[in-house]
């Protein structure tokens, strides 16, 4: 396992890259910038990346994080890659549904299912 930072773990599983967000809450602008700074090089380093962003440790996030996810999705798809989200709890899933973002993201139950789905 290559650890990009203490709060972000990067694993290579089959042909996919799994980024686990080891945050209980993703709220601060600083946290969101830190995640972006850690994930963007992973996208740049892997042509046509199959990326899983795993939220199984995350209990709470704000709309600023939703904004980052949208930016990351566009960056990945512009490079011919694909993004899956996994491990999203019921409350956060409610946020995705209310904002209709569940229509634009592919959301899987867990990272194993997500990596197999590519």
């Amino acid at each position: 396992m290559d650890k990009a930072s203490p709060k972000i773990a990067v694993d290579y599983v089959r042909s996919a890259v799994v980024v686990t967000l080891n945050y209980e809450k993703i709220l601060d602008e600083a946290d969101i910038k830190s995640i972006e700074k850690s994930v963007l090089p992973v996208i740049d380093d892997n042509d046509k990346i199959k990326l899983v962003l795993d939220f199984s440790k995350v209990q709470f996030l704000s709309s600023a994080m939703l904004g980052l996810l949208i930016r990351l999705k566009k960056t990945i798809e512009d490079k011919g890659g694909a993004l899956r989200l996994s491990g999203i709890n019921d409350k956060i899933m409610g946020v995705f549904k209310i904002t209709r973002l569940d229509k634009i993201f592919t959301i899987m139950q867990d990272s194993a299912t997500a990596t197999e789905s590519f």
């Binding site: 709309s63 904004g67 949208i70 209310i98 904002t99 209709r100 973002l101 634009i104």
Partner: peptide
């Protein structure tokens, strides 16, 4: 409205909508 199809992929503009929703 951030839920309109043409706003769905915008990276911001959901805060007030979430407040009203919750």
């Amino acid at each position: 409205d951030p839920c309109c199809d043409h706003n769905l992929c915008k990276a911001s503009g959901r805060g007030l909508f979430l407040i009203k929703s919750y």
